[in-house]
């Protein structure tokens, strides 16, 4: 079986390499891509959208359908993870551990035992409990705000430097994941509840699609942000730049919520109870 797999892989690789022979040369000025599209983008982007970073303009303006459906793909990835993994039946683990906050004593509740529900004196701890790790907790607590600020910076400066909604969203999601890893999953879920995740993730897609639809309502093509000029009280070129920013924020929100959602489902095996 292994040998067949190897043969298939090598054959496919050889075919792909054979296919590259037909490619135009590296940075060939006569290749189709650099005769029609690229010169237009390179020459016209600044005057049409006033965005210095051409990649951002291409992604969020010229080819915004593509990016909109990419965002939708990410959202549906989150939904698929949710449907596959989430367990709704109230299936308790056989033992649960609680710690008495005032004394620090740990008690173990057997299956069917009485659980101190909603009492402030007890806090739930993981079954695979790890002792209080002071260093990791404290350092992560200090670093998380800066990571979040960096994520917001990446979203806001997609026009001028590499980055944009997708990367910033991943960084924002990673900050919450860091909280879940350094403390425990329940702390992170308390900050970012499941409902919030599940609402924010389609909200991001909706912001994206809604911006496009607003342009349609204002009498221009779908996703032609210069229509927003009358709403934002700016000239059409600046409106395109601002439209890109709004769209990026939508992408950022969707990606952040989806990343956290997938992580929560994956690490707790759908129980939202105890995680990595």
């Amino acid at each position: 079986m292994k040998i067949i797999g190897l043969i298939v892989a090598v054959l496919t690789g050889a075919l792909l390499i054979y296919g590259t022979v037909d490619f135009p040369g590296w940075a060939d000025p006569a290749s189709p891509a650099s005769t029609h599209l690229s010169p237009h983008f390179i020459e016209k982007t600044m005057e049409e959208t006033s965005v210095p970073n051409i990649v951002t303009a291409v992604l969020a303006d010229y080819r915004s359908y593509d990016t909109m459906f990419e965002t939708t793909v990410i959202f549906s990835g989150g939904v698929a993870c949710f449907i596959l993994l989430r367990i709704f039946r109230r299936k308790e683990p056989s033992d649960r551990l609680y710690r008495h906050v005032l004394t620090g004593a740990t008690i173990r509740v057997k299956e069917g035992g009485k659980i101190p529900l909603d009492s402030d004196d007890f806090e739930r701890i993981d079954t695979l409990w790890t002792p209080h790790d002071l260093i990791i907790k404290t350092v992560c607590r200090l670093l998380i705000p800066f990571i979040q600020l960096f994520g917001l910076y990446v979203i806001a400066h997609g026009h001028h430097s590499p980055g944009g909604g997708f990367q910033g969203g991943v960084i924002l999601g990673a900050s919450i994941m860091l909280l879940a890893i350094s403390q425990d999953l329940r702390t992170a879920v308390q900050r970012m509840r499941e409902k919030v995740d599940a609402l924010l993730s389609p909200t991001g897609v909706f912001i994206y699609a809604g911006t496009g639809a607003l342009c349609l309502l204002l009498g221009l093509n779908f996703m032609d942000y210069s229509a927003l000029a009358s709403v934002l009280y700016v000239d059409p070129v600046t409106a395109r730049s601002h439209g890109i920013l709004i769209v990026e924020i939508g992408v950022g929100i969707a990606v952040m919520a989806t990343i956290i959602w997938i992580y929560n489902n994956l690490s707790s095996a759908g129980k939202y109870d105890e995680g990595l």
């Binding site: 997708f166 990367q167 991943v170």
Partner: peptide, 26 residues
Amino acid sequence: AVDVSFTEATVGAGASTVFFVAAVFR
């Protein structure tokens, strides 16, 4: 390709590795 590199840095180093570890954990 700076933008692609940024995406790879954030997703590859951060999110996907953590997802893999979480999946192996389960």
